[in-house]
Every structure is written in structure tokens, then in C-alpha cells.
Design a protein around this nucleic acid. Structure first.
Lengths: 156, 156
DNA sequence: GGTATCGATGCATCTTTCATGCACGCATGG
DNA sequence: CCATGCGTGCATGAAAGATGCATCGATACC
């Protein structure tokens, strides 16, 4: 599927606000509501829109700790990498996890309720993984932005 | 507002799928649809649910580069920090940006269409910021998980 | 130039979903 | 024991979503 500029506008709008009605969308992008509905369905069917998600207020819910953790493994091989990946995927506190090229092997974005949980996670769960060689943590002091929105150029 | 376990279940479900109807929600959490509607509205009004967002397929849309960039500033002061923050917020390619404690001063999560854009961003936009002293990039090779979902414990 | 064909669009309609008034049940406190 | 208040489910009117149909515009072909 090749999205045209209307599709791009729709996706851009829905990134910002996924609860827009087709009527509201139609005003924003200058197209009838029925067309918005059809295009939206097409974008979802084509997989360009992967889904809709509610964003929760982490602070209000008691998640006061956020940290970016860089992890190095002892050795590299399909086995240890795969095993570590599987382990990471099971950790609820890990919101995002990337295998990266650079100083580190993995970068994790984690959220916890308090320092105790964080310490417990690092020492009693992460560091005892046999593959893990080194762990360096950066605590998030302030979130400047957290869009999760792609920079689509609508060209007008 | 103090969310009870039904509220937690609702939030958990809506994190996974923000397009659930109240009827579908009611089946998932064993509560009538009308109550789901009321509780949902309350959670939104209380700010526990901050909003709904569509997630787009980055690969399909041509964003093949993702990187975690660590930035160090030359000196620290309210001025340079604030100025850098403001600059970061204006950069569309920056999805998330954190001020952190640790080796780095800032961590940025960026997405680009290609290596040229990335190089251009680093050299012609980021490094020419007068506050910036050092930049280290980790390219994302593989996304193990990218939930953006908080680990709510529903206790049942 | 004329015409046929195909996809995209807007309107109208039907269906689904949402929002809310109401009465009931349950708990707590007088 | 009764009164009060909150949370709940049911039922109804309002809003939003989905879709058949006729029309419009563009392209291709004769």
C-alpha cells in the first residue's frame, strides 16, 4: 500500500490522538467522515497503523523511577544473545529493549516504583544472569519529550 | 483518585489495546459495559489515562534507522541545559529525550529514514549546538520489545 | 476527440456503540 | 434497626461507525 498525503495526515493526527472520531478527523484533514473511516480501516488492514494504546500517567501510578540501562554480555554467540533476549522479554518492568551496536550490547528502558525495586532488579535479577558481564545505569531525571510519534512529512 | 483492581484491569487492557469497546472491556474484566464506560471516563478525567495514540509501523513507513544517542554538554548551568532542552523538543526526529544522571547528560531516542538523515542530524544539527561537547550513538539492531506499557499488578 | 473503465468520493441509511437516568443491593454509621 | 451513600446493572435516547449507491475525475484506448 502506498499512502498518499491524506493517509499521512490521518496517521499523523491519530498518532497525536488515537481517540479521534471520523467526524473530527474529517475536519482536520478536509475529507468526508466516511472516507476517513474507509482510509483508516485500510491503513489498519495494511498494517501501517499497528494499533491503538492508552498512555498511562506513570507518576500518578507510582512509577517514580525510570532508567536507561546499558548491558554488556560476557561473550557473543547466538545462544547467549537469544537467551538474554528471551529473559528480557519476560521482565515486566522493561518497557523497551534494544540490541544495539556500540559500546553496549543492549539498552533497556525500565520503570519501577522505587529504588528498592530498582536495586532488586539490578542485583537479584539482571546481574545474576550468567550472560551478563557489565551493567551501567542512567537514571532519568527529567523527561523532555516522550512522543513515540514518527516525523511524517505531509508536504502540506 | 484511588484506582481499585477493576480500574487497574481496565488500564492494563487499554494499554494493550486502546480501541476496545466498553462491551469488549466488560468481557475481559468481568464488569458491565456501562460501568466500564463510567470508570474509563473517570480514569481519563483523573488523568490516570493520559490519552490514546495510534502506533505506526516504522519500518513500513521507511524509518529504517533507530538510534540511542548519549549527549554530554560542555558545561552545566540552567541556561545551557534549558536551551538544549528547548532545541531537542523542536526536533521531530527525536521521539524521546531524557535528562539523565550518569555518564551522559542526555539520552535521545531518534528515528530516521536513512543513514544520510542520521549523519545530517548528528553533524549539521546536533554537533553544531554550542552547548554540546560529546555525542555517542548506539544503533538499534533489533527491537526486543517496545511496549510502552507499565507493569500494573492487578493482584488477580 | 470521443468514449469506456476504474478508483475515489460524498450522501443517505442502517447498525453498533456510547452515555446516562433509574432502581436495586450492599456496606457503613448513627 | 434504619438512614445514608456509593457502586452496580438494566434500559433507553444520542452519537458515531460502516456500507450501498450514484457521481465525479482521471487515465487509457479506440
Amino acid at each position: 500500500m502506498v499512502p498518499d498525503r491524506f493517509d499521512l495526515r490521518i496517521m499523523k493526527a491519530l498518532q497525536k490522538n488515537g481517540a479521534l472520531t471520523n467526524g473530527e478527523l474529517s475536519e482536520l484533514i478536509n475529507l468526508s467522515a466516511s472516507q476517513c473511516s474507509r482510509r483508516r480501516a485500510a491503513l489498519e488492514a495494511a498494517g501501517l497503523i499497528e494499533g491503538y494504546h492508552a498512555r498511562l500517567n506513570a507518576k500518578e501510578l507510582g512509577f517514580s523511577i525510570r532508567a536507561i540501562i546499558r548491558v554488556n554480555l560476557r561473550m557473543h554467540g547466538q545462544e547467549s544473545d537469544k537467551e538474554f533476549s528471551r529473559w528480557v522479554e519476560r521482565q515486566e518492568e522493561v518497557q523497551s529493549a534494544f540490541s544495539v551496536s556500540g559500546d553496549a550490547d543492549y539498552v533497556l528502558d525500565v520503570r519501577m516504583r522505587d529504588l528498592d525495586s530498582f536495586s532488586q532488579f539490578i542485583h537479584e535479577r539482571l546481574l545474576i544472569q550468567p550472560q551478563v558481564a557489565q551493567v551501567r545505569s542512567d537514571f532519568v531525571l527529567k523527561i523532555l519529550k516522550d512522543n513515540q510519534a514518527l516525523a511524517l512529512s505531509t508536504d502540506g
